[in-house]
Each structure stands twice: as C-alpha cells, then as structure tokens.
Design a protein around this nucleic acid. Sequence first.
DNA 1: CCGACTATATATAAATC
DNA 2: TGATTTATATATAGTCG
Lengths: 144, 144
Amino acid sequence: MGRGKIEIKRIENSSNRQVTYSKRRNGIMKKAKEITVLCDAQVSLVIFASSGKMHEYCSPSTTLVDILDKYHKQSGERLWDAKHENLSIELDRIKKENDSMQIELRHLKGEDITSLHHKELMAIEEALENGLGSVREKQASLMT
Amino acid sequence: MGRGKIEIKRIENSSNRQVTYSKRRNGIMKKAKEITVLCDAQVSLVIFASSGKMHEYCSPSTTLVDILDKYHKQSGERLWDAKHENLSIELDRIKKENDSMQIELRHLKGEDITSLHHKELMAIEEALENGLGSVREKQASLMT
DNA sequence: CCGACTATATATAAATC
DNA sequence: TGATTTATATATAGTCG
C-alpha cells in the first residue's frame, strides 16, 4: 500500500527496513487499539525489532500477566512451568558441577581424604607437586 | 475503511461487532506476519474476543516463551512469580560460587598465576604444602 | 536520519446473495 | 447466518525538503 507494491519478503536495504518497520509498527499498534475499543477485545502485542528494541501494546483494563494467565488456561500450554523447569534443570546441573569442584578442592587441601585409596592419593599428590612447582617457579621469577 | 466511516468506539450491535472483530483480527494477524517477514522482527500477538475465544500469532523462529523471556529482561517487569525469581537468584549465586571455585582450583594447579602477587602466591604455596603434608601422612599410614 | 507529503495498495463497512 | 462483492477509508512505499 503505497506508491509501489512490494513483495512480502525481507527488505534488504537496512535503512528502508528500519523505516518500514517503524511505520508498520505504528500501524499495527493502532489497529490493536482499535480492535480493543471497537470489539472490546483484549490484546497483547509484543514486538522486537531485529535491533533488539522492544515495543508493546496491552489493552487497558488488563495486563500482560492477565493475558498470559488466560493464555495458559486456554492453550493448556504450560508457559510458566516450561520456563520454570528449564531453570531448575540448569540449577541442578550447576549444583552438581559445584559439588564436584568442592570435593576436588577439599582433596587438594588434604581434607576428606580418609576414604581415598592409594591410587587416588597418588593422583592428588602429583597434582599438588605440580602446582607447588609452578608456584615456586613463579615466586623465584618475582625475586628477579 | 469501508463504505462508511466509523467512529472508534465500542460497536453496540453485537453481530456487527462479531463480524468486525473477525475481519480486523485477520487483518492484524496478516500485518503481524508481514512485519515479521519484511523487517525480520519478532512478534507475539495474543487476542481474546469478548466471548473469551483466543487467537494468537507468534513469529516463526521463536516461541512465546522466548519472547516473554526477552520481554522480562528488557522491561524488568516481574512476569514470573516469586518462586521463579528466587530460582533465578539462586542460579546466579551458584554460578558466581562456581566461577570463584574454578579460579581457586586453577591457582592450586599452578594455572593462571602469572598475574598474582607475592602475598597471594605465598598463600597458595602454603595451602599446597599443607595439602601435600596431609596426603603424604595418609599415604604413610596406608603402608601400615 | 527525520517528518511531511502523495499516489497507490490494502483493509474493511456496508450491501448483496 | 456466512461468503462474496463493492465503494470507501486507511495504511503505507516512495519521494522530497
């Protein structure tokens, strides 16, 4: 709708794309407001430009959270739970990583080693000797 | 836009309202798809009719969860509940703990120590000596 | 890069089937 | 009712300052 017809495909010229983006964004926002008023609908509209900038519209009389809540109920899709689950999984993973580092650290400090066997102790001893070697070398170099 | 101009206020005739709703809903959906393609934007659009029926559009290449996640980051608004927020705070805390343990481990292994000063090196050296002492003592006791 | 300005393409209100 | 067809209102692509 304009001087010339355009195909609906990515606008390659980046400044044209930006201009079209902001014009059309305004257009959609306006339409969203209109349908809200004309048909008393509830609308939530969130747009991210490729630049990462965000714009949103949400009908007055409601909030994004309300709309998502209704969405949640209607679609049966568990938006929150899914998000929640991902976080918990990551938390678990990192906690495990944490635990094993903590054990390694304790061992290197000579703690909690009573239950270790000869082979494991040898490995720790070697690691400590190597570390000590590096540190002493560094110390020496600082003495110039 | 049509045979007659209309004011932007609630359409009182309910069947007209319904008709206008579905026409305009289609229009907005189409516009949303177009801006997505033309300007590679990411769009999430959720509409509830007054009847309670829902319609949604979400750009391909993304999901509502992704968009909400970005929304959350940008707006700083608390879309997620308190429980969720706590999880994410804990995750951050544990990640930091993780990082500092990783650094400590590296130092004990003699890695990444070039930027350390004498005092710090001394502390590490002492820790290593202590560890080595404990480990060797344990080794000796195993030899019965 | 912006806003203002058209000429045209689209969307859609009302009419019609 | 609901789909299709107009006649008109709007949106907007390209242009200019």
